[in-house]
Design a protein around this nucleic acid. Sequence first.
RNA 1: CGGGAUGUAGCGCAGUCCGGUAGCGCACCUGUUUUGGGAACAGGGGGUCCCAGGUUCAAAUCCUGGUAUCCCGACCA
Length: 488
Amino acid sequence: MAKEITPRQEDYSQWYLDIVKKAGLADNSAVRGCMVIKPNGYAIWENMRDILDRKFKETGHVNAYFPLFIPKSFLSKEAEHVEGFAKECAVVTHHRLKADPSGNGLIVDPDAKLEEELIVRPTSETIIWSTYKDWIQSYRDLPLLINQWANVVRWEMRTRPFLRTTEFLWQEGHTAHATKEEAIAEARLIHDLYADFAETYMAMPVVKGVKTLNERFAGAEDTYTIEALMQDGKSLQAGTSHFLGQNFARAFEVNFLNENNKQELVWATSWGVSTRLVGALIMAHSDDEGLVLPPKLAPLQVVIIPVPKPDEKINEVAEKLRRELLSKGISVKYDTDEKNRPGFKYAEYEMKGIPVRVAIGQRDLEKGVAEVARRDTREKEFIPLDGLAGYIGTLLDQIQENLLLKALRFRQENTREANDYNTFSEILEQKGGFVSAHWDGTTETELKIKEMTKATIRCIPLERDDEEGKCILTGNKSAGRVLFAKAY
RNA sequence: CGGGAUGUAGCGCAGUCCGGUAGCGCACCUGUUUUGGGAACAGGGGGUCCCAGGUUCAAAUCCUGGUAUCCCGACCA
């Protein structure tokens, strides 16, 4: 039973927080806006990370690591960039504490003030490009294709677990190229890679597109985005890939000698996805019973439960099944804990989103069957023990496919066209979702629409029909539809 | 940074208006009976009532100041 979608944000917000909590994904921490990612939640991120890391390496990228702290002067070199991040930075001003003379705990030692303040990285462009300056001399040093797995800190006004936390984990790729074409191709390669990851592994369909000038990354010339529609009708930016032009090369004086012995500025990209993807995964598939995980990312794919409790005969069958599943590369746990009864375990594993549950009971064994329950539809079936492992393997694939289809259907049902402002605002107010509409291409109009409806242009879809039209607000000429939505 | 709320056991809360023994549910520990969709009973352990000051014979409760968190906006991956 799917969560009934309500346009009332408070309900959905509470539903989301409940799942994060009940599925044991994360807790609030003692630090403002930061969360503790618990083992269940971290395991999902690890799976995402492993798959993405493999894909990056397959496309020629390598990993490296740069400092957590960025000297303040570095950050100010690229004007747009600094303006984009200045308001949300944590700053280190001192390097020592001492005992409070009044005897109560510790104080910051005023004598330990830093000459130059250090910024806890909100993103690493600046420190990486100041390093690249030394690494790049010749066209032979290019392209430089580096990725970093790291944590970053952005002091946002308002936070929510996974979707927006003060500190978050991510990967950030930073590449340098000899030509503009090559840099654009790189940004698009990663854009495609992200979209493929979202659909194939997260079972979450995304719209690929380009950000408008207003929504673009600070310092970028083009921002490619993947936008996913959540079950409450709001859009989530799930990943971005930026073509940075020569802005950072210019700011950090990264030149190279080309084949004709001439100095040129390098062309750059940067791209990243974060633990926000875990939030996206929760919001894309979960229902009122809790988390629903796509099998390809589920830390645990199958759980076997002895009914009512383990005994010799059940253990034997369960162990055999467990070994067979493991040999197929399927992760599985045989839950022999006798503290809890089966009903308790069913509810528990459903809350945690385990895709397939197998219940093996004495009565079933006499008939040579086991009860197999799938999390996505909550259907149960009795399946012969003979060939059970193979059946489960197929079932996991079916669940993966079904989740994607369901999400696709949802997106289809919640993507609407609007040809005049009244229809446009009515859809946004009453139904939410994506609204495809004409726009005159100006930031002014975009901001006005945002002010009036709270909706922003999520992207200019890469795949769109050439269709002349009139802007829904100003009536001015438009070359094609763009995608509006309220966003996270 | 604006609006609203909250801080009491690991978690969720009552008690605060009207000052007088620190409570309830879940979880935890022990035992018994149970066991096919979140078991029942009995017993037990666990507290800086956010912090500081004030009023009072007496403060979780009243007063003053601080602080933290959450929700709704604006800002953002």
